[in-house]
């Protein structure tokens, strides 16, 4: 439980772009993320700041309305809109991938894996995976998840 690798879900929509939420379908691909060790995280907690992990730039435009996009001034920066922080132009600093992927896991995922600007309001309130693989996994827990693709 202390040592391992994080994975994040990448959804690729397979239903029409304008489909209702109830008709929304997608394939899921699990992407391995750079994951820091417990010791590395603990050593970084009091010594590492956000600016040690990411370079930042102001977004040229903000997300507002369907299809609107955040645009970054410089190549190499990725616009992300995660966790209610609005548009951020981020670039992971070289050599900081594992710490950024762990301490700023959601921002890192947004900056590294988001492929399309495609708003999709999706709420999971109940998910079941009845016997979809060798092991029978049933997920029945309160899950509040909204995916809004960048």
């Amino acid at each position: 439980m202390s040592a391992g690798i994080n994975y994040c879900a990448k959804y690729t929509q397979t239903s029409a772009a304008t489909s209702e939420a109830k008709d929304w379908t997608a394939t899921i691909e699990w992407i391995a993320m750079p994951t820091a060790t417990e010791a590395d995280v603990q050593a970084a907690i009091e010594t590492t700041t956000f600016a040690d992990l990411f370079d930042t730039q102001p977004c040229l435009s903000n997300l507002s309305g369907a299809g609107a996009g955040g645009v970054c001034p410089t190549d190499g920066f990725k616009s992300v809109n995660t966790g209610g922080y609005g548009c951020e132009c981020l670039k992971v600093k070289a050599g900081k991938e594992a710490l950024a992927g762990t301490l700023e896991k959601r921002r890192y995922a947004g900056a590294s894996y988001s492929m399309h600007m495609h708003p999709i309001p999706l709420t999971h309130s109940h998910t079941e995976h009845p016997d979809t693989s060798a092991a029978m996994y049933t997920l029945q827990w309160y899950m509040s998840l909204t995916v809004h693709w960048l």
Binding site: S2, G4, R106
Partner: peptide, 18 residues
């Protein structure tokens, strides 16, 4: 270990212990 993320514009992850 699945981890759910509460909020808007969040993600869905799991941790695979070694």
């Amino acid at each position: 270990v699945y981890g759910t993320d509460d909020g808007t514009n969040v993600f869905f992850t799991y941790f695979k212990a070694s």
